[in-house]
Design a protein around this nucleic acid. Structure first.
Length: 258
DNA sequence: ATGGCTGAGCTACTCAGA
């Protein structure tokens, strides 16, 4: 089974890129972040043509997450987090893999910049709540996938110039520690597990030729609970969509499990 | 290099992203 996570930075502005990508890569499940639209304007019909059902948690203008799937997803919900700003950032559902029930969380963590503002404290509180809810969830369920745009640079290797980001909301130790807390509950960062010293990125800024200069960062992740590690076949960052015309600033990360 | 693109909402410009 191929599960893919991609921050598309507006699903409507990106519709051709996303459908082209689907045709080429044929994911079983595609987790989208930053869809930037309300549910009623989500292009479900365009995805239905390729055989996907859409499960959408949108809002006007900003944020928003969705799950596209070739087969029905069970127990989809949007209320895992009690979001103080009512932003649409988590959608979860259940699938079966070789009789294992797996809970999939598709998340879009707040950016948090600039630090020293309420945006940063919102990110900290959001992460604190998310970690705590996942900890509780683990008491009942041991097969969990958390994927999406974490807006966290886990380690120095995960950005082109760490010095520039060590005081940024994506790279501050305080934030990276929340990521470590999540891992310490019993998860693995699958990309890093499979690529010990590889420097690869999932995001490149639109400006200043960041893509051309490979000034990127790895902020989109797949965390799998330790129970699921044996099911992992491969994990890949697919840079091709970032090279296209009118791209998202993020590129997909692709997980194969069986 | 703390914003030099990009998108949404709207139709001039602000807000947001990372």
């Amino acid at each position: 089974m191929k599960i893919i996570s991609w921050n598309v930075n507006s699903v409507r502005a990106r519709i051709d890129n996303v459908t082209d990508y689907i045709k080429e890569n044929k994911p079983d499940i595609l987790l989208l972040q930053e869809i930037k639209t309300q549910n009623e304007n989500f292009p479900s019909d365009a995805f239905k043509k390729y055989g996907y059902d859409s499960y959408v948690f949108g809002q006007k203008s900003y944020n928003g997450v969705a799950i596209l799937s070739k087969f029905p997803i069970k127990n989809v919900s949007n209320d895992f987090i009690d979001d103080e700003l009512k932003q649409s950032r988590v959608i979860k559902g259940e699938i079966l893999l070789k009789k294992k029930k797996i809970e999939i969380f598709n998340i879009y963590v707040p950016n948090g910049n600039p630090v020293e503002t309420e945006k940063y404290s919102y990110k900290k509180k959001w992460l604190k709540q998310f970690v705590s809810k996942i900890q509780k969830k683990l008491l009942k369920s041991s097969n969990i996938i958390i994927a999406g745009d974490f807006n966290i640079i886990p380690e120095e290797i995960d950005v082109y110039d760490f010095k520039r980001y060590e005081n940024d909301a994506l790279g501050k130790l305080e934030i990276r520690k929340k990521y470590r807390e999540l891992l310490n509950l019993g998860f693995k960062d699958i990309f890093r597990l499979k690529n010990k010293n590889k420097q690869e990125y999932t995001f490149w800024d639109y400006f200043a030729g960041s893509w051309q200069k490979n000034f990127g960062m790895r902020i989109d992740h797949f965390l799998l609970s330790n129970n699921l590690i044996e099911n992992v076949v491969s994990i890949k960052i697919n840079k091709k969509p970032r090279s296209k015309i009118k791209p998202s600033d993020h590129t997909p990360i692709e997980l194969q499990i069986n």
